[in-house]
């Protein structure tokens, strides 16, 4: 690797530099940022074969790569195509890991119902959350966009979901998160299901005010937040990105 330690750290701050697997993990991060599906898939497969812990590949390779892509979008360095292509590359790696993670857990970890709220059609962030949750072994029911409170609640009931996750990108539709949580309360389901909210305009304060159970700024934090909400222990190669999620 030609990169100096310093430049490596400044771009990809979450790497354990001193370990044997650091170089391939770094390459994996880079491949996600560079939207290289083939390399992501091959590197992931190779590391699995070499016996690298699955959650280490995930939390120190794939996820920091995605986080970097998402950060570049926030700064205006990446546009929608780059972001979507990085998500797609991430999925190639997660597709390798998912069956193995599920095997290890014997079954899906938990069921998550997710959707973008009423009158809102933005779904790039939500779809990324889905990719990440599924890649972490969760079973996800995607209700799509423009989802009414009634539809959310029906799906929670029907699927006996433990988590209800909502995304909103319009400040003009954010209040539908609140209405959905109120509906949940009224239907008596609030005790059975935890709510998780996200989307660019959603703040931790807003999330708290509307009575959500959890909030993440980044999709990459969603899996560890869901585990936290359900009291599931974090796995090896623990995710270092908890600082941007809040249990409310």
């Amino acid at each position: 690797m030609t990169q100096t330690k310093e430049s490596m750290n400044s771009i990809y701050p979450y790497l354990e530099e001193d370990s044997k697997t650091a170089a391939p993990l770094y390459q994996l991060q880079k491949a996600v940022v560079q939207r290289d599906c083939k390399t992501v898939k091959e590197l992931t497969e190779r590391m699995v074969k070499e016996g690298v812990d699955l959650f280490r590949i995930l939390n120190q390779g794939l996820i920091p790569g995605m986080l970097e892509a998402s950060e570049r979008f926030r700064k205006g360095e990446f546009f929608i195509p780059e972001l979507l292509m990085s998500s797609r590359a991430l999925k190639f790696g997660l597709n390798v890991l998912r069956p193995l993670i599920q095997e290890r857990k014997n079954r899906g970890l938990a069921k998550v119902v997710i959707g973008t709220v009423k009158f809102d059609l933005h779904d790039i962030g939500k779809n990324l959350v889905i990719i990440l949750l599924e890649g972490n072994g969760f079973e996800v029911v995607d209700l799509g966009v423009d989802v009414s409170p009634e539809k959310f609640i029906k799906a929670v009931e029907k699927n006996e979901a433990q988590i209800l996750a909502m995304s909103s990108l319009l400040t003009s539709t954010m209040s539908w998160m609140k209405f959905t949580i109120e509906h949940l309360q009224a239907s008596g389901l609030k005790k059975k299901v935890k709510t998780l909210v996200g989307g660019a305009p959603v703040t931790p304060i807003f999330a708290k005010n509307i009575g959500a159970d959890g909030y993440c700024r980044e999709a990459t934090s969603a899996p560890s937040m869901v585990k936290k909400l359900l009291g599931i222990k974090e796995n090896e190669g623990e995710s270092p990105f908890k600082q941007d999620s809040t249990r409310l």
Partner: peptide, 8 residues
């Protein structure tokens, strides 16, 4: 990309 953006 455009499909992902505009499909809804």
């Amino acid at each position: 990309v455009l499909h992902e953006e505009m499909k809804h």
